[in-house]
Nucleic acid binder design. Structure first.
Lengths: 221, 221, 221, 221
DNA sequence: CATGAATGAGTGTTCATTCAT
DNA sequence: GATGAATGAACACTCATTCAT
């Protein structure tokens, strides 16, 4: 084989390496396009092209565009939620701090990046792909709610938080950070009369509001 | 000819009556389909069919699918926001009550109905239809933010609310009710391990939380 | 009828006058559009609109777009050819002058105006509307050839022109003026590296060329 | 499976062979339809069908109907004009002979065949497709005029032709052969009271006429 | 394994023509 | 007569998926 195999820093032949890396490359390419253009508007060919393979090869790894999307959902969100559970289990100290940490961490890892766009996609396509929607509910939404619910519960148990209905409060807590994710992904490029506020500033106001409330409080002395 | 002759010499000329009702019928049909299937996936022909007319007739009233969508947005959302400004202007009494009223009213009129689905659509399709996105920002998002911003400002001016950054707080306030709208429209039909909380209950918790805060407060006596 | 009838300079009521003028107005409007956009691309509605009537009214006078076109062809070209025959019959003097006159007159009346565009249309649509094509051959092409043929014949009979095959020479004579008509109508708006020559200048060159070749030359000894 | 299996293990891989031949087949089919029905009235699907492929395949090779048309123009006309320039450059001998040759050759290769129909199409559709019209002016009309202009200039420079305005004379020269092309393509199938003259006879008369007019006459004393 | 040529169903939009009023 | 609301067939172009090589 005189044809010099391109860049082979390990013992493994390059072609072999590529073959094993294919699913990851395809997933990464798919994530980008799905977030940018949505599920229906993403063309199989451009995903393949960005991953450096041909259209046919994509179908060798994922039998349909829908299955490809499911794989992306699995890869981009479940991991972070699982890690969240570990963090919560190991935390010592104020629950308010834990809540702050969990939420800013979610924003850092998911919300502000490409993975955040997946949330947008799912909301959009849920009704057209009910099976996908159920999968997303089971693998992403329910675990997230369990995670935040456990934090809240701990705060109420310790007396740090006042008693509140769990499920409803979780919704209220999740909403702002999710909204930032959604709006950034959807309208980030649009001109606003009043400029969009910084997502991190919104998060801080939210934590402030949530913890302290909106009302002016009489000096408690 | 036993087939009931379509000519109907009654008081109301049928053709005329239809002509005046057409825009409303088309808008109603379009709203249903847009919410159910999204903008891109909705076919002009099925909208026309549900309104009981042919494809060509739809284009007699709206020059393109985009214009049809804009008309739906105006009819379903912009109207309510305009009314909201009037309500706010005329309100006398506690700003906390006004805030409560504005938000529950929005949920009653928009969030829980089909119109709420429009928000979902826009988030989903914004990046694929930038002109539509800008229209939505100008006609819905910006006015909504102005509306809530004016309420907040009034509360802070009167000393009823503590001082907070306006734009960011508006985001935090809007998020939960919007999230209920989005999730209902997207995942309403999905099974959840823990049942979805009632949206109205979530709204109440939100108002409670927002106004009072999460933290247990030392008895101020 | 107290409604003041608009501008009634004669005894005839205005509505009556309009009714009688309708065909002419429709024909004039149709000519403009057919020349500008061709037969297929001309919309029945815009013809009606320019004539100041509704779409339905057009079909009251002409049962189809094709019949409308035939009427336009009749009105715009046949008249001038018939007049040409009269002019030729009454002419006294040199045949070269007659030829010059016939051709410049055709350019003045037909070639440079809207009617000239009809020639373009016919050439374009002939194969799609064979019946129209035959009509045009019978009513326009054949009479034109007879007209020029008679002029040539007279010139050859009188010894002013040298003998040449009639039909072929007629083709050669007609071609340049027709080409000017066609090109003006088709490419008049296009940019040319070398500017289009003035049609009248081309006609003069043609007559110069043709006559220098056509004239019997006296033995110059 | 008695149905002869489509796999054909012969020497030439069928798929490959087709792929290379496709553009030519599509161009040939397109030329036929464009000439027969015009640009606007030709349907992409029927072109594909005549070339033995599906609609989608056509768009694999040409991104739009306009581009397909441009390709046909290039293939059918531009090539011959380019060759004409070479012929002119290499010619030795009388310019009258060269003129004769150029014009009869154009008739042989273009005018009498399907390619001639393209001229008809362009005249017809120019105003509805301005970009196409400009392309045609740049690629066909202007080069043709340059070609004939250079021949004329050479004749005038050498004293073989008498001095005449270049651009105008070119128009006069082109017109008859172009008219034959146009009429053949448009009315070829129509019955004429006096039969259409033979195009080649017309060409000969034209050359006779033109040259008797063009040639500098030796003082006949 | 990998390719990419080929497919054909699918959709927004236009417009000649009809007909109830 | 005149209107204009309604129709529905028509067409360019796209893209997920297949399969011969």
């Amino acid at each position: 084989m005189p044809k010099s195999s391109p860049s082979r820093p390990t013992a493994q032949p390059a072609r072999q390496r590529r073959k094993e890396a294919r699913p990851q490359e395809l997933l990464a390419a798919a994530l980008e396009f799905f977030v940018e253009k949505g599920f229906a508007a993403t063309r199989a060919e451009e995903v393949a092209a960005r991953a450096g393979v041909s259209k046919g090869t994509l179908y060798l790894y994922y039998p349909s565009k829908e299955e490809l999307f499911k794989a992306v959902v699995r890869e981009s969100l479940a991991v972070h939620i699982a890690e969240g559970h570990e963090v919560v289990a190991q935390h010592r100290g104020s629950v308010a701090d834990l809540l702050r940490f969990v939420m800013t961490e979610w924003w850092r890892r998911v919300g502000q990046g490409a993975a955040g766009g997946i949330c947008k996609i799912m909301i959009a396509e849920a009704r057209n792909f009910p099976e996908l929607a159920q999968f997303y509910v089971d693998e992403v939404i329910a675990p997230s709610h369990r995670l935040l619910g456990s934090v809240l519960q701990r705060g109420m148990d310790s007396g740090e938080f006042r008693p509140l209905p769990l499920a409803e409060t979780v919704q209220v807590l999740i909403a702002p950070v999710l909204q930032q994710t959604l709006f950034l992904s959807a309208f980030g490029a649009c001109h606003m009369p009043t400029p969009w506020p910084e997502p991190m500033a919104v998060l801080e106001v939210q934590m402030d509001l949530m913890l302290e409330g909106l009302l002016q409080r009489p000096p408690s002395g």
